[in-house]
Structure formats: structure tokens, C-alpha cells
Simulated scan of single mutants.
Amino acid sequence: MRSLALSLALVLCAATLAQAEVKTKVIQYEVGDKTFDGYLAYDDSIEGKRPGVLVFHEWWGLNDYAKKRTEMLAKLGYVAFAADMYGDGKSVDHPKDAGEMAGKVRANVDEWQKRATVALDILKKQPQCDADKLAAIGYCFGGSTALQLAYTGADLDAVATFHAALPTPSEEQAEAIQAKVLVCHGADDAFVPQTAIDAFQKKLKEADVDLTFVAFPDAVHSFTVKDSGKHGNPGMQYNKAADEKSWAMLLDLLKNNFGGGQQD
């Protein structure tokens, strides 16, 4: 009898675990005449609506790294949507190709912001999403994208960037920012000049934006990406301490804006 009871308990436990899992799906949408393939993740064991987090990928495109971060957020109780900023879910591995694709998007700021705005609208429309509780985060090119979205006056509670370029907003754009902004920067990141950092901070300070700027010691570009050193560029390297601390700061930002209930 004990054996039977144990077996039944294990079956029930397994069934519960099977039901409580992160669900993912590709959502296809359009911006103008171009098709995009975003990536949605949420925990289907959670009832009701929950805060939404929009995730913007690095210059490589919507790759496994961006999807992994999206799933990590879903496991913590958020509904997360990784936007596709290039179209057709495209991603590349060579820095030259990535630079060309990111450059094309950056060259047309209106289109850049429009793609980000449409992706936010897609997240808002998800039945799991509480459209009154929204955040945007991004890595590298994606961090710049999250800032560009904030510059439009988007209804965001929080924005977080990781090893991002910091486009300087106009006075009007800075004043349009509604979100609390967290910038996680590598103190030794040679890709982002100090002049850009100073100009960015000055504009946000003048607009009274709630900005937290953290420069992690000994961290260079792409410090959150474990295989960032595979390209042989010493300016792109993983830093475990900076990765873990910046992620913890993000979670604190989200909890402080949206309240408790998420797992650590």
C-alpha cells in the first residue's frame, strides 16, 4: 500500500510539474510591408494578468541568447516578449553582418522607434499581460532600442540596458521619458566613448529622469554573454560578477515597480 501511495504521489507531482511550465511561441506581425517574428514566453501555471517585459536583442538578431533571457523572465512570473528588430526572426554570427544590419536600423530613427513601438503593442495585446505594468530591456543594440522606445514617450514603468550604446536624446525626447531607467555599463567598455556617456547623463538629468547608472569594474562590452569571447575580440568578454549583479539589479527594478510575487 505504501508503494502504491508513493507511486500515486509521484504521478501527481509529475503531472503538476508538467502543467506548470513556461510556454513559448512565435508571434508573427507586420510593420509596414515587412514581416517580423517575435518570441513570447510565459508561465501557464499563473492565473490572471501579470507585468509584461519587452526584450530587445543584441546586434546579432533574435538569437538563442535573447530567447533565453525571455524565458528566464517568464520563469520569474512575467510575460516576456522578445521583439524582432530585423524581420523574419533573422540572426547572424559574423560581426560584419551584425554591424550592417544594426546600422541599417539605426540610420532611420523613425523606423527604428516604430518597430519598437509595434512590438510593445504586440506585448500589450497578449491575454497574459497587464498592459498597465510594462518594462523594456535590451542588450547591446537592444539596449539602445529600449532607450529609443522610451524617447517616444512610451507608457513604460521601467527600462534597463546592458552594455548598450547610449544615444543622446533631444531635450524633447528626454522630457518624454516616463520610465525609471537602469543603465548597466562595463567600466572598461571601449565601444562606448565617455563623451557619449556624459551627453546621455546630462540630458536625462536636465529632464529629471529617474536614472541609475552603474559602471561595473573590469567589465567590457557584452559582459552578460557567456560566449562573447568566441569572436576573438578582447573588447567583448563575459564577466560573471557583472552579469549576475546587473541581473539582480534588473529584478530589483522590476519588483520595486510591479510589487512582489516573483521568484528570486
Rank of each mutant, 00 (worst) to 15 (best):
A199I: 06
V183N: 04
T161V: 07
K180G: 11
Y151E: 06
F191S: 15
A176S: 14
Q201L: 13
C140W: 13
S144F: 02
K133D: 12
Q178N: 15
D132L: 10
G138Q: 13
D155P: 02
P169D: 06
G153Y: 04
F141D: 03
S144T: 02
A179W: 13
I137G: 04
Q173L: 01
E172V: 11
E172C: 05
V183H: 08
Q148P: 01
F191G: 11
S144D: 06
D189G: 08
F141P: 05
D188K: 15
E171P: 05
A160H: 05
G142V: 10
A158S: 15
A150W: 03
A176W: 02
L182N: 10
D155M: 09
I197H: 04
E172W: 05
Y139D: 01
V159K: 09
A154C: 04
I197P: 00
A187C: 12
L147N: 10
H185Y: 11
Q201N: 15
G153Q: 08
I137F: 09
L134N: 09
F191C: 03
L149Q: 07
A160R: 01
H163K: 06
C140R: 04
K133C: 01
T195F: 01
L147I: 03
H163G: 02
D157L: 01
G186N: 07
T195I: 09
Q173M: 08
Y151L: 06
I197R: 15
Y151F: 15
G186E: 12
A174F: 12
T195E: 15
D132S: 15
V192D: 04
Y151P: 03
